[in-house]
Structure formats: structure tokens, C-alpha cells
Amino acid sequence: MPDTQPTAADADQADQADERPRRRQARGERRIAQLLDAAATVFTTSGYTAASTNAIAREAGVSPGTLYQFFPNKEAIAIELGERLMHKMRDTYGEALDAVDPAAPMELVVTSAVDRFIAFNSEHPAFFALMHGPDVPGRMAEEHEALHASLVERIQALLSSLLPDGRHADIERTANVCLSVYKAGLELVLASEGAERDAYVAELKHVLVRYLEPLVGDCAEPAGPATAPLG
């Protein structure tokens, strides 16, 4: 029986067969992104507990049946959204908390870091709604604790570049205070708009600068018989 060589038509059919799954996958990814965007809006306005899959479907402009093709329940949606936002958050604080020039003014250091974090949370308010609400869904609570620990470590690394002679325990305490102050201020920032939000951001920076400046100044002075604690 003679060998049959593939024709151009056969090649075209094969390409079309390969293209169909790719198109279906692309449509599915777009639908998932659409549902996650809708969920972010609903979680931000209603909170996780009060949100429902019906509300998310309505916000996305699809039927509940379409939503259930991609997510079995509200918790699954929140977990997927939370994981994506935490990934973006890690990128943000990786850029914001790099080591800095010890000679850099404290106001510049604080402003650079705070502006990046505020920009992220302003762009993604669902992150705060999910991570700081009363009912953090699924395994997100553990992942958020891990994110918090990583964030403290990055703040410690930044502070170590500013306080090269500081004790580890003191720097760790200072990092925790800075993060706690930031979180408290962030809640006020996100609850405000326009000029009032800008005013809260300025106040937050002012508090952090006034807290850190004396510590860096004390550490920069020649060491005496004993080193005063940072906290």
C-alpha cells in the first residue's frame, strides 16, 4: 500500500484542531478574570460574609450557572482572588522595601515605601476587605500570616541598612511597630476619599517619620558604654 503524504489541507485541519482548544482556554481565562473582577467589587462593597455568588454573577453580567462552571462556591472565588492579590502584594513590597542608602533622608525612605503600599491597596481594595475582615476564607488566613511574617522580615532588612549597629530584637520590635502603625493608618486611608484621603496619607507618613528619625539618629551616634534600646 503506497505511503500517503499529508496534504496542505490536512495541515490546515490539524492547525484548526489545535487552535480550537486554545481559543476555548483563552475564553475561559477571560471569563475567570471577569468573575474575579466582579468578586473584588462585591467583596469590597459588601464584605466577604455578606457577599453571595448570585451578587457576584450579577456584577459580572452572567448567570449563576455560568459562574458555577468555573467556581463551586464563594470561598473558592475568594481564595483564587486572594492568592492572585497576595502574589501582586509580594511584588509590591519587594520593590518598596529594598535596602536604601543609609544617608537618605528618613522622609524620603518612608514616603517611597508608603506611597507604593497605598497605591496597591487603593488599586486593589478587595485585598484589605478579604485579609482584614472577620471571616478570612479557607487557607487564606494561614497564607496571610505567612505574608505578614515575610513583610516584617523585609522591613527588618530595610531597617538593618539604616541601623547597622542595632540589635536584632530591637529592629524586629521596630519593624512590628511600623507595620502596625501602617495597617491602622491604611484603614483610615481606605475609608476616605479625595483630599481627606490625601490628608490621612500625609499624617501616616508624618507619624512613621517622627517615630523612626530619633531611632536612626540615636543609632548613628558614636556608641557609648551601653547601647540604648530602639523601642
Rank of each mutant, 00 (worst) to 15 (best):
L208G: 01
H87I: 07
A141V: 10
L85E: 02
E19C: 13
V201W: 00
A126T: 01
A169Y: 07
V201R: 03
S52V: 11
D15G: 15
G65K: 12
K205N: 06
E95H: 08
I32D: 01
A11L: 15
V152F: 05
L35D: 01
T111Y: 03
T44E: 01
H206C: 10
V201D: 00
A202D: 02
A195F: 11
V152A: 07
P105I: 09
R27F: 14
R116S: 10
V100I: 13
L179V: 05
I32C: 09
R27V: 08
V209D: 00
G94P: 01
H206E: 13
V110Q: 00
M89W: 15
V152W: 03
S160F: 06
M1N: 12
Q5A: 12
E123K: 14
E59K: 13
L147G: 02
F43D: 01
F127P: 02
V189Y: 00
A223W: 07
Q5C: 09
L230Y: 06
E187K: 15
L130S: 00
L212G: 02
G138K: 09
L158R: 08
A119E: 03
K88N: 11
T7N: 09
D218F: 11
S112C: 06
V209C: 02
A119T: 06
E123I: 06
S192P: 04
A195N: 10
E193A: 14
L158C: 04
E221P: 08
E143V: 07
G82M: 05
L67C: 00
I171N: 00
M140R: 03
A40I: 03
I79V: 15
D12Y: 14
A99K: 13
G224A: 10
R197V: 03
G224F: 09
T53Y: 04
V189C: 04
A39S: 04
I79Q: 03
S63T: 15
F70P: 00
S160A: 08
T66C: 15
S46W: 03
D170V: 06
A14Y: 15
T53R: 05
G166F: 08
R173N: 07
A199L: 09
D198L: 13
A39I: 02
A223T: 13
Y68N: 02
R167N: 07
V209W: 01
D98T: 11
L215S: 03
R167C: 05
L35I: 11
